[in-house]
Design a protein around this nucleic acid. Structure first.
Length: 494
RNA sequence: GGCGCGGUACCCAAGUGGUAAGGGAGAGGUCUGCAAAACCUUUAUGCGUCGGUUCGAUUCCGACCCGCGCCUCCA
């Protein structure tokens, strides 16, 4: 079954088709690095990550580029008030973005930065001017003349043909021919960062960077362009106008947009007090894997209600999957099984693909994997599964996790980094009590733990439960849970 | 006002013109020295409201109510 994706341009779910063979050329709008990324940003980046992962899992070769917007009004304002250069300012938040992405197991694309392509943008604008699509204002700014591009509005389904500008033109923008025309290039203002280029001094407008960098990296037409739903208009509409007016060719063939999320049932905003960065959530004690799982639980085109309760539920769900994986890895299985596990694995693998093929229905994919977990547990309890069955089931878990990326128990070191960052930034007060306790106690080394586990096993063999329980309590105090199973004593970090 | 999305059990959340996935939580049980893990049973005659089409609608159509998004740079 082929992959079907919703294409914002057509407004329909369509079969995904590439321009050339098996190769997907994909561009995603990345962050403007003026602050730490919030959970809404990461909903989009996780959605795009899952798209990217699924394309590769489906056998496509992928060339995947993401931009970093490292110059814009907010950056200029914030860096000026901080008394540092634009570069000094953005480097910090770009680093934070990359760290946060890694925290959420988001795979890193090819990154391109706006400030490293300024002259290319200037040349692009010069070409637009020559072709009559752009004009220079008296102060040296350049604007795009949307009246020259008949397709303007085709992505966002807006009809600009009948719109009269009238007399209500913004006072600040009196130099524009039409109020709808957008800035390609902004003339320098005193004290603001500016670049000297072949079209004069100034700085780029927001949209031009994506046209220039995507075409430089991926060609004049490419397969897939992704971003948050707010970018449909004006950002992506403007990219299309700039690019297609110059090349005369379709810009991106598929447009992928993820829906905004709600936090505790309301639009996230600083005034409502429900505005969270990824780091805020981790400091409150939520695991990165819980956050990623919750973000991935709701298909990308649906509004997701991000709640603390949901995070707790996600944590338990991830735990259930990890427990199952451990059971397969550590359990004793006879050499010959019933074939039931192999059949179940095959069926589940197909359900996973069917769900994902259906416009990345991650909820269906999760339902498939949980069905498998339950059925496989029953079969293991009944002693029906052999080594081959376990191997097949593990492979399906891998298939699942190569998209969802939550099974590896790597939360602790990530949390530790964020705790240390908070302490270094003077934000130690935001660290939850539980985390502080967990990281203030001397972390037990795996070797120490193994020793104590051995002591527990020895004590239990002698039915000395007092001693074994005492050691268990000791381990529990440093965040190690000990479980007694038929196959032996097992431990995990909480 | 224009364009668009959604309202499914205590919570999150799939889905279909033919009788409601999955996860969490709750209750009861099995197993266990205990705990954990795991499993079983159980929790929507019901899918915002009211009409209509149909043998049959949660699923299609209409109206209404509610929530949300975009409509000058917020993912």
């Amino acid at each position: 079954m082929p992959l079907r994706l919703y294409n914002t341009m057509s407004g329909k779910v369509e079969e995904f088709q590439t321009i050339a063979d098996n190769e997907v050329r994909m561009y995603a709008c990345g962050p403007t690095v003026y602050d730490y990324g919030h959970i809404g940003n990461f909903r989009t980046f996780v959605a795009v990550d899952i798209l990217q992962r699924y394309l590769r899992q489906s056998g496509f070769r992928l060339r995947y580029v993401m931009n970093i917007t490292d110059v814009d009004d907010k950056i200029i304002r914030n860096s000026a008030s901080a008394g540092v250069s634009v570069k000094q300012y953005t480097v910090k938040f770009e680093k934070a973005f990359l760290e946060d992405s890694a925290t959420l197991n988001i795979e890193q694309p090819i990154l391109v930065r706006a400030t490293e392509h300024i002259e290319e943008m200037a040349q692009f604008i010069a070409k637009l001017e020559k072709a009559g699509y752009a004009y220079r204002a008296e102060d040296g700014s350049y604007y795009f003349r949307i009246a020259k591009f008949p397709g303007y509005g085709k992505l966002s389904k807006k009809d600009f043909a009948g719109m009269e500008d009238g007399a209500r033109v913004d006072v600040d923008e009196y130099e524009k021919d039409s109020a709808r025309d957008f800035a390609l290039w902004k003339a320098p203002k005193p004290g603001e960062a500016s670049w000297d280029t072949s079209i004069g001094p100034g700085r780029p407008g927001w949209h031009i960077e994506c046209s220039v960098m995507s075409m430089a990296e991926l060609g004049e037409s490419f397969d897939l362009h992704a971003g948050g739903e707010d970018l449909i208009f004006p950002h992506h509409e403007n990219e299309i106008a700039q690019s297609e007016s110059l090349t005369g060719k379709p810009f991106a063939h598929f447009w992928f947009h993820s829906r905004f999320l709600l936090v505790e049932g309301e639009k996230m905003s600083k005034s409502l007090g429900n505005f969270f960065t990824l780091r805020d959530l981790v400091l409150k004690g939520h695991k990165p894997s819980s956050i990623r799982f919750l973000l991935a639980s709701v298909p990308y085109r649906h509004q997701l209600n991000f709640t603390v309760d949901g995070l707790k539920q996600a944590a338990v769900s991830v735990e259930r999957l990890r427990n199952f994986q451990q059971r397969l890895l550590n359990g004793q299985f006879p050499a010959d099984g019933s074939q039931a596990g192999i059949d179940l694995a095959q069926e589940t693998s197909q359900r996973l693909r069917a769900g994902m093929d259906d416009d990345l229905n991650t909820a269906q994919a999760q339902a498939a994997i949980f069905d498998m977990v339950r059925k496989a547990n029953v079969a293991i309890d009944a002693g029906q599964l052999g080594k081959n069955d376990a191997t097949a089931l593990l492979a399906v878990l891998d298939q699942f996790d190569s998209l969802f990326a939550v099974l590896k128990d790597d939360d602790a070191p990530k949390i530790k980094c964020i705790v240390e960052w908070a302490q270094a930034e003077g934000r130690a007060g935001e660290i939850s009590k539980e985390l502080l306790e967990a990281f203030s106690s001397q972390p037990a080394s795996d070797g120490d733990i193994q020793e104590k586990i051995a002591a527990i096993e020895a004590a239990r063999r002698g039915r000395d439960f007092k001693t074994s329980d005492a050691i268990r309590a000791e381990l529990a105090a440093v965040g190690i849970a000990v479980e007694i199973t038929k196959d032996g004593v097992r431990w995990k970090r909480k």
